[in-house]
Design a protein around this nucleic acid. Structure first.
Length: 452
DNA sequence: GCATGATCATGC
DNA sequence: GCATGATCATGC
């Protein structure tokens, strides 16, 4: 079977530059304007309908289930993917970009460099469109049509991610793969319904079908880069894994006290009291966030740096806050759709200071952390409990840290007068969710043990 | 020493 | 001017 094209095409499907030129004409336009497509199926009914419209109505590719590239002679793979605009105006990926299904039986014999993934993702015609809720897909505006492939400088991380997943299959643990195992790549589940399972080579346990995909956070950073010049960075740093790269950044500062670091970065002056968030400022500086050269990998991997000061006992001096929540939103939105769940699913870089015998806090460790999936239900309990409080007209009542193993609720405003409206009309002091100190203590101990 | 309420400093 | 990422302060 081969790809078939409609006759009398306005471009040459065997010529890459002709395809790209024609694709470019779609930018800033909609399928309604550029094709005679009557209607595209409702994307809620069937995902990918817009993509099918682009493929069939615009490029004239006859519907098929062929495994090869969409433009075999030009070697191009057509991928259509939604973006949305953030409040800041920046384009962000609405979803992960799925590349190709993972075949558990054959992937174990592949090597990364010559893998199906690398092959499928090396030459992509990427067409992005602005997703707008309630809009007919025919009226989605195409934002970008460009040739794109996995960037060379990201390969070390992709390779690490790929091996993490493939090694699980090789160990007969395909059923234990999780999307959160990896940084840029994601082995995402892909099946028509949740009961579908596939055979794996080294275990009798059936595993969920999964596909290679690029995480949404990675794609968001990639879009930014497509519109900007490359970020300059030392060549030596490129080949390193992310953790190693971060370690190297922090290495020169390990063992220094908060005050020493503060004066080194110019935050501490004689006769001026030290800023409350000194450690956090120092972390930013070491990561280079202020130099306009944000560690690009951080954004791509969606990692959030957090500074934690551990007391002599090993317990964090403070709990860890999240952004404040809106009481009205809390009541309206289920946990599944909440910002809170988004924060919980983030990967974090913990920058750890320890209290010494002299009472000074010294920079001592960095580690990555992500909340274990098993703890999510406990956090959900906290969310639902606070939701019930607000529903019953008592937003002022918080969930105490003694009531939940993982998190609690506490004020988070400028002061007691800094309030947020409630659904029942009475403003209540702004609050947010916090990770409990006890919970953090255990998790940090686990994370550090795992990295040693 | 811990839990909880209150507040601060900075950057965008 | 406010969100953010934290720390401080107080009472038990």
């Amino acid at each position: 079977m081969s790809i078939e094209f409609r006759e009398d095409l306005p471009y040459d499907p065997s010529d890459k530059s002709s395809i790209l030129e024609y694709a470019n004409e779609l930018v800033g336009h909609t399928l309604r304007e550029k094709t005679d497509a009557g209607s595209v199926e409702d994307p809620k009914v069937r995902r990918g309908a817009f993509g099918d419209g682009v493929e069939y109505s615009y490029f004239g590719i006859e519907p098929n289930s062929v495994q090869g590239p969409d433009f075999p002679e030009a070697g191009l793979e057509l991928k259509t993917t939604p973006v949305k605009k953030a409040k800041s105006g920046k384009l962000t990926a609405k979803e992960r970009l799925v590349i190709t299904m993972i075949d558990y039986m054959t992937v174990v014999d592949e090597e990364f460099e010559t893998s199906t993934l690398v092959d499928k993702a090396k030459d992509i015609l990427l067409v992005t469109y602005l997703y707008e809720k309630d809009k007919d897909p025919l009226d989605y505006v195409v934002e970008l049509a460009t040739e794109w492939g996995l960037p060379e400088e990201d390969m070390p991380v992709f390779k690490e991610d790929w091996e993490t997943v493939v090694n699980k299959v090789r160990a007969g643990k395909a059923h234990e793969i999780s999307g959160s195992d990896t940084l840029y790549l994601e082995a995402c589940t892909k099946a028509s319904n949740s009961s579908v399972r596939r055979q794996q080579p080294f275990s009798d346990i059936p595993a969920k079908p999964r596909a290679w995909a690029l995480k949404a956070s990675y794609m968001t950073a990639a879009y930014e880069k497509m519109g900007m010049q490359d970020i300059k960075r030392g060549e030596g740093e490129r080949a390193l894994g992310l953790l190693e790269l971060v370690r190297r950044r922090f290495e020169p500062y390990l063992g220094l006290t908060e005050e020493e670091l503060g004066s080194r970065f110019g935050y501490v002056h004689e006769g001026k009291h030290k800023p409350k968030n000194l450690c956090a400022l120092v972390t930013r500086r070491i990561l280079g966030v202020d130099e306009g050269a944000k560690i690009a990998e951080f954004e791509k991997a969606g990692i959030k740096p957090k500074t934690i000061r551990l007391k002599k006992s090993g317990r964090p001096k403070e709990a860890m806050s999240f952004p404040k929540f809106d009481y009205r939103e809390l009541v309206e939105r289920d946990f599944e759709d909440s910002d809170f769940l988004g924060y919980l699913e983030q990967k974090y870089l913990f920058v750890i200071y320890r209290e010494g015998g002299d009472g000074a806090y010294r920079l001592s460790d960095v580690c990555f952390w992500q909340m274990p999936d098993d703890d999510i239900p406990e956090a959900r309990r906290c969310y639902d409990q606070m939701r019930d409080n607000v529903r019953s007209g008592h937003a002022e009542v918080s969930v105490k840290s003694s009531e939940n193993r993982c998190c609690h609720v506490r004020p988070h405003g400028r002061n007691a007068k800094d309030t947020c409206p409630t659904p029942y009309g009475v403003p209540v002091v702004k609050k947010c969710f916090w990770f409990n100190q006890g919970y953090l203590r255990e998790e940090i101990a686990k994370a550090l043990a795992a990295e040693k």
